[in-house]
Design a protein around this nucleic acid. Structure first.
Lengths: 160, 160
DNA sequence: GACTATTCCATGCACATGCATCTAATGTCT
DNA sequence: AGACATTAGATGCATGTGCATGGAATAGTC
C-alpha cells in the first residue's frame, strides 16, 4: 500500500485509446467514468504537488510536508500541539511525521518539549521563526493553488 | 518539488481551527476555498492511493505504478509502446518509469525490445502473462474506485 | 562527411516515506 | 501492589522516487 508523496513529478495524461468497457468479467456497469475521474485526480494532484513543492522549496526551503505541519500549528491559538494531534490532520505515517518534526526542529522552526500531563507525549511548538517562515510561505502556496487548482490541466510543471 | 507517491498512508483531515483569512498580507480575497479544496484533494488522493495500493499488492502483487503501466499497455491495440510514449501518460519521472518497467520485466509481465526505427528507443510489450495479470487486477481497481471515489471521506484506510 | 546538439533510456546517488520494532509511560484488571 | 495490555513517539530498515549524469543513437549544421 503506497501513499505518501515523495518527490513528485509532472507529465500530462494523454495517450487516449479506444476503451469500450463493460465486458463480461467487468465489475460494474460504467466504471470508465470512475477511471476518468481517478486519472484527473491523479493528474491534478501530481501537478499541484510538483508545483507546490518546487515553489516552497525554491522560495522558502520548505518541503510540502514541512509546510503543512507549520500551517497546522500556525492555525492553533497557542501554536502548539501534541504529535498525535498533528498526525490526525496530516496524511503522513507517524514515523514520517516524527522525522518531519525532527527536520523542522533542526531548522529551528519548531520546538519539542515534554508534555506535563502525559510524559509519553511530546508537545510541538511553533517558534517565532517558524511562524515567520510559515507566514512568508503562505502567499506562495496560495498563489500556486489559485493558479493551478482550476487550471485546464494538460500542461506539465516540468522544471518549474 | 515532491510529487510522486511512494508508499501511501491514511489519516483523516480534521483539526479544525478558526481561520479568518484575508489579512493584510494575504494573496487574494478568498483563498480559504482553495485551501479547503486542496485539502480535500489531498485527502481523497491519500485515501485512494493507500487503498488501491493495498488492494493491488495484496491481491495481485502489483504496485500502483506497475498496474498503471500494465493498464496503459493493455489499452493499446498492439499492447506495446515506446518508453517515451508511456512516460507521457503516467505521472512518473523517466527514471522511475524505467525502473517500473524493469520490475515488470523481471516479473515476466512485459518485454523490452529494441525499436527498429529508432535504435535509441525501447519498445515495451505486454506479455500474455502481463495481460492476464492486468485483466485479473482490473476488477480490483474498479471496485476500490467505486467504493471510495465518492465516499464521504473521513474514514481512514489504515491497515486495509 | 565531420561536429555539435538533441533525444532516449539506464543508473548512481540522495532522500522521504511506510512498516516493524523498541522503549517509556499510562491504563486496566484482579 | 503487581501483571498485562495499550498508547506515544523514535528509529532501523527496505523500498520507491526524482535529479544528475552517462552512453548510445539520431538530427541538424556547416
Amino acid at each position: 500500500m503506497r501513499l505518501h508523496s515523495m518527490r513528485m513529478h509532472d507529465n500530462v495524461a494523454s495517450m487516449t485509446a479506444t476503451k469500450v468497457s463493460a465486458g463480461p468479467g467487468e465489475t460494474s456497469a460504467d466504471d470508465s467514468a470512475d477511471v476518468r475521474e481517478w486519472r484527473e485526480l491523479l493528474a491534478r494532484h501530481a501537478d499541484l504537488t510538483c508545483a507546490l513543492d518546487r515553489a516552497l522549496q525554491a522560495g522558502h526551503s520548505l518541503g510540502m510536508s514541512e509546510y503543512e505541519v507549520l500551517e497546522r500549528l500556525a492555525e492553533l491559538p497557542d501554536r502548539s500541539a501534541k504529535v498525535a494531534t498533528i498526525a490526525k490532520s496530516v496524511h503522513l505515517s507517524q514515523s514520517a511525521l516524527s522525522r518531519v518534526i525532527g527536520r523542522l526542529e533542526a531548522a529551528g522552526l519548531v520546538e519539542r518539549s515534554m508534555c506535563p500531563e502525559d510524559r509519553r507525549a511530546v508537545t510541538v511548538c511553533l517558534t517565532d521563526e517558524g511562524l515567520q517562515r510559515q507566514t512568508e510561505a503562505k502567499p506562495t502556496q496560495r498563489q500556486v493553488l489559485a493558479e493551478r487548482l482550476h487550471a485546464p490541466l494538460g500542461k506539465t510543471c516540468q522544471a518549474l
